[in-house]
């Protein structure tokens, strides 16, 4: 299956919601500790088999890029979270000299996560290490709102895929918070883990179901109406779980990647929850995504500077 070598360490990968084979990859030099970053726009070549990835565009930044996401309203727009705290809007159809088309600078520390609203499609959220989340729309020059309740770095923010006003954030203060953009404070706080929470994601088919991934090596699935105990506790990663994502096609399936260099697929309702384990990365696996348009198509990237795209069930290196 296709493999792409990036010059820098991979941090995030996203499938385009518009084109089947289009990918966005965020990378940072020197493992993101120091140096430049680059945002790649990649295309899968349908008949080329292995090494069938071509680069459509690449955009350089002065600092590492920690996360990226496609716009849901325009097929060539993408937004990235940069290590200097800025959020940059890119147009993949324009040459690098015309990019970024917009740069939003309000976060005072590194921006670590962005997510575009998939329901209303006109706004996006950013999470930063300055403990705050910000809501942005393209028709305003500044952020629309700032959400400040976390008492430690916010590592991840995800819009609810079924509700236009609701989103969740995961933070290093060991809580996950659920927010409504119309409410002045968060609507729900879940002290989900005993260690820092690095990622969270909504179930695409159940608007009350939320999964969290933590430094304590576990993934927990929560029902936000009953947060006393998790619905499921998925153990199996050897180190902290960096990112999780629910499958867009199957309700109880989720994908995770971890600092133990593996990418795992889980079915949290099954007795034996671990469906598959992919150990193709030779360094920390940091970014994963599952295609909305092609069922079972998975992409992953990591600090070994490779981007793998493969069909679930096949060997990514084959």
């Amino acid at each position: 299956m296709p493999v792409f070598k990036t010059p820098f360490s991979g941090y995030a990968v996203r499938f385009s919601p518009f084109y089947e084979g289009r990918l966005l990859v965020a990378t940072s030099q020197n493992f993101g500790i120091l140096g430049n970053g680059r945002l790649h726009v990649l295309d899968l070549l349908p008949s080329a088999g292995a090494a069938g990835i071509s680069e459509v565009a690449a955009f350089d930044t002065a600092d590492g890029v920690y996360d990226c996401c496609w716009s849901e309203s325009h097929d060539s727009l993408a937004v990235s979270a940069v290590a200097d705290g800025s959020l940059k809007l890119w147009d993949a159809s324009l040459p690098p000299s015309a990019n970024p088309v917009r740069s939003f600078r309000e976060h005072s520390r590194e921006a670590h996560s962005v997510d575009w609203n998939p329901v209303r499609r006109d706004s996006f959220l950013s999470a930063s290490w300055d403990d705050s989340l910000k809501l942005w729309t393209l028709d305003r020059p500044a952020s629309l709102r700032t959400f400040r309740e976390h008492s430690y770095c916010v590592y991840s923010v995800v819009w609810s895929p079924r509700h236009a006003d609701v989103f969740a954030s995961a933070s290093g203060d060991r809580t996950v918070r659920v927010w409504d953009v119309r409410e002045p404070v968060s609507t729900l706080v879940i002290p989900a883990h005993d260690h820092e929470i690095l990622s969270c994601d909504w179930n695409k088919y159940d608007e009350c179901c939320l999964a969290t991934a933590s430094v304590d090596k576990t993934i927990r699935v929560w029902d936000i109406r009953a947060t006393r105990a998790p619905l499921a506790n998925l153990a199996g990663h050897g180190y902290a779980v960096r990112r999780i994502r629910f499958s867009p096609h199957r309700e109880s399936v989720l994908l995770s990647c971890s600092y133990d260099m593996t990418v795992c697929m889980w079915d949290y309702r099954a007795e034996d929850a671990l469906i598959a384990r992919y150990d193709h990365h030779t360094e920390f696996a940091v970014g994963i995504d599952m295609s909305v348009l092609v069922e079972g198509l998975i992409a992953s990237t990591g600090w070994d500077e490779f981007v793998y795209v493969w069909q679930h069930g096949t060997d990514p290196r084959a």
Partner: peptide
């Protein structure tokens, strides 16, 4: 949706701003 009612207000109409 497969589960019961969610504890959210129904989504508003209009743009996010």
């Amino acid at each position: 949706t497969t589960s019961g009612p969610a504890p959210f207000k129904p989504p508003s109409s209009g743009s996010t701003s």
